[in-house]
Amino acid sequence: MIIGIISWGGGYKMPLGLFDLHCHLLYGIDDGAVSLEESLCAVQMAWDEGISHIVFTPHYTPGKVSAEKEVILKRINEVREAAENAGIHGIKYYCGNEVLYVSGVEELLKRGEIFTIADTKYVLLEFYQGVRYQDMFQGLSRVVRKGYIPVLAHVERYVCLYQSVERIEELRDLGIVIQMNTECFFQRIPDVRMVWYRKLMKAGYVQLISTDAHGADRKPPRMRKAVEWLERHCDHGLVERVLYENPARLLEGRIL
């Protein structure tokens, strides 16, 4: 559902009401924003890009020190309050983790040590870029068997999935949600790898796009160019699903 529009140079109308379900804009938690001021600046940038729903997903790496849940929730409230004081009133904020999959993650989820996305059954999972497909599939299967729905973060990074529609289809059949980063759509002349992943998007295999932003300066939240690309290259129904219907259903805990 489109809430409104923003006018950009050249006559382009930027939709409001966009969703960012993967970012590291919560300050002082991981390798993202380093201060409340930077978080606030990045939130303003996200709003300017048309984003009105932000899921903070700080990294969670099993076996390493991660921020306590109480700290994460406290800082989300601080960012919300700072944004409202700065006149940014239209954004809804949610909590999650970007979880590096290792054996045993499913048990940590069951014990409640990891944030799922907006307290739903959806969990944002990443793997090492060089992971073997068999290991990825088995890990995702274990999480599914525990009753969760994995959202595979930044699908474009995994060597084992490149040029294998069959593997992508197998993951979709397992119930995995495929997420792609918006930076995949920034290059005017994309490299061969990005050409393939853009074809994956146009064919309907990708269900979500997110910024994976890390701050106001280094990898800021950028959505506009990705939306422009989708509007030019994908059919209207696919654009509506990827930008609005799928993320909205996910935040409500509904099946995509």
Results as ranks from 00 to 15, higher is better:
E126F: 01
A86V: 08
E106R: 07
V71L: 15
R132C: 05
K69Q: 12
G96V: 01
E113M: 03
G112D: 08
Y94Q: 05
E84I: 03
E107M: 05
K69T: 06
T61F: 12
Y122H: 02
Y128P: 12
L125T: 02
F56K: 01
Q129N: 15
V131T: 05
K64Q: 11
F115V: 15
G130N: 04
C95A: 13
G112R: 14
I76F: 08
R132A: 11
L124G: 01
D119Q: 09
E68P: 09
N97M: 02
V102M: 13
Y60H: 03
L73T: 02
V55W: 02
V123A: 06
D119G: 07
R111P: 04
H53C: 04
C95F: 09
G87F: 12
G63F: 00
Q129S: 08
I54P: 02
V71I: 13
A86M: 06
G87D: 10
Y94N: 05
G87P: 05
E78V: 05
L124H: 00
A67T: 11
I54N: 04
E126Y: 02
N77M: 11
C95Y: 10
R80D: 09
Y93D: 15
F127C: 09
H59R: 02
A83K: 01
A67P: 08
A118T: 05
V102H: 03
I91Q: 10
V105L: 14
V55A: 02
V79T: 11
R80N: 10
P62F: 10
F115A: 14
G87L: 03
K74Q: 09
E78W: 13
I76T: 06
H53R: 00
R80A: 09
V123E: 11
R80E: 12
Y93F: 15
A67Q: 10
I88L: 13
